[in-house]
Deep mutational scan, measured.
Amino acid sequence: APTVVALYDYTANRSDELTIHRGDIIRVFFKDNEDWWYGSIGKGQEGYFPANHVASE
Score class of each variant (00 low, 15 high):
42 G>T: 07
51 A>V: 10
10 Y>P: 03
56 S>V: 14
25 I>E: 13
7 L>Q: 12
9 D>Y: 02
48 Y>Q: 03
49 F>G: 01
17 E>F: 06
6 A>L: 02
48 Y>K: 07
38 Y>Q: 03
41 I>C: 11
34 E>H: 11
8 Y>T: 10
5 V>T: 13
54 V>I: 09
51 A>N: 02
2 P>M: 15
1 A>M: 09
25 I>D: 04
56 S>E: 13
37 W>V: 01
20 I>D: 01
17 E>N: 00
23 G>Y: 02
24 D>K: 04
44 G>P: 05
19 T>D: 06
26 I>R: 02
42 G>H: 15
41 I>Y: 06
30 F>R: 15
1 A>E: 06
52 N>W: 07
23 G>F: 00
18 L>I: 09
50 P>I: 04
24 D>T: 02
1 A>D: 15
36 W>I: 06
37 W>C: 06
15 S>Y: 09
34 E>P: 15
18 L>Q: 00
47 G>C: 03
41 I>W: 01
52 N>R: 11
39 G>P: 01
39 G>I: 04
48 Y>E: 00
14 R>W: 08
44 G>A: 07
51 A>H: 08
43 K>I: 09
47 G>R: 03
34 E>Y: 06
26 I>L: 05
20 I>R: 02
18 L>E: 01
46 E>T: 09
15 S>L: 08
15 S>Q: 11
17 E>T: 02
13 N>T: 13
9 D>R: 02
51 A>Q: 10
20 I>M: 10
21 H>Q: 14
2 P>L: 15
34 E>L: 06
57 E>V: 13
14 R>I: 06
53 H>W: 07
52 N>I: 06
41 I>L: 15
9 D>I: 05
39 G>T: 00
49 F>Q: 01
16 D>I: 14
39 G>K: 01
56 S>T: 14
29 F>V: 14
10 Y>R: 09
3 T>S: 10
29 F>G: 06
4 V>N: 05
55 A>H: 15
11 T>R: 06
24 D>G: 00
46 E>M: 08
16 D>Q: 09
36 W>C: 02
52 N>M: 06
47 G>E: 00
14 R>S: 12
56 S>Y: 09
27 R>G: 05
47 G>T: 00
20 I>P: 01
49 F>K: 00
25 I>F: 05
48 Y>D: 01
35 D>C: 10
34 E>S: 11
1 A>R: 05
1 A>W: 11
38 Y>T: 02
29 F>H: 15
33 N>T: 12
31 K>R: 12
43 K>W: 09
37 W>S: 00
22 R>V: 10
50 P>V: 02
23 G>W: 01
6 A>M: 00
43 K>E: 14
5 V>F: 09
36 W>K: 05
24 D>A: 05
53 H>G: 06
43 K>G: 12
7 L>V: 08
30 F>P: 03
35 D>A: 10
36 W>A: 01
22 R>I: 08
7 L>S: 05
53 H>C: 15
32 D>C: 09
44 G>Y: 15
27 R>T: 13
27 R>N: 13
21 H>R: 14
56 S>I: 15
48 Y>T: 00
17 E>P: 00
36 W>T: 04
36 W>R: 15
26 I>E: 04
33 N>G: 09
13 N>I: 13
23 G>T: 02
55 A>F: 09
6 A>R: 01
15 S>K: 14
11 T>S: 07
38 Y>H: 04
4 V>W: 04
9 D>Q: 06
20 I>Q: 02
1 A>N: 15
57 E>G: 09
16 D>Y: 10
42 G>I: 09
17 E>A: 04
30 F>H: 12
22 R>K: 15
54 V>A: 05
11 T>D: 09
29 F>C: 15
49 F>C: 00
52 N>Q: 10
24 D>M: 03
18 L>V: 05
3 T>E: 08
10 Y>A: 02
26 I>G: 05
37 W>E: 00
23 G>I: 05
18 L>C: 03
8 Y>C: 11
20 I>F: 13
5 V>G: 03
21 H>K: 15
2 P>G: 15
47 G>S: 03
49 F>L: 04
38 Y>L: 03
39 G>W: 06
4 V>H: 10
33 N>K: 09
40 S>Y: 11
8 Y>F: 12
21 H>C: 13
24 D>P: 04
43 K>F: 09
42 G>V: 08
6 A>I: 06
46 E>Y: 10
40 S>I: 06
31 K>E: 10
28 V>G: 00
40 S>H: 05
2 P>K: 13
36 W>L: 04
33 N>M: 06
26 I>A: 02
39 G>F: 00
5 V>D: 03
29 F>T: 13
45 Q>N: 06
7 L>Y: 07
44 G>V: 05
6 A>N: 03
57 E>A: 06
10 Y>C: 05
16 D>V: 07
51 A>D: 03
20 I>K: 06
41 I>Q: 07
22 R>E: 12
12 A>M: 04
20 I>E: 07
40 S>V: 04
53 H>L: 14
33 N>F: 03
7 L>A: 08
16 D>F: 07
15 S>R: 11
56 S>G: 15
50 P>S: 07
19 T>Q: 04
6 A>V: 07
2 P>W: 15
46 E>C: 07
31 K>F: 05
12 A>S: 12
46 E>Q: 09
31 K>A: 07
39 G>E: 00
38 Y>S: 00
26 I>D: 01
45 Q>A: 11
6 A>W: 03
26 I>M: 06
37 W>G: 01
19 T>M: 01
43 K>T: 13
22 R>C: 06
28 V>L: 07
30 F>V: 10
41 I>P: 05
51 A>S: 12
17 E>S: 02
49 F>T: 00
31 K>M: 08
1 A>T: 15
22 R>A: 11
46 E>D: 12
13 N>H: 10
39 G>V: 03
54 V>T: 15
53 H>I: 15
34 E>F: 04
30 F>Q: 12
49 F>I: 06
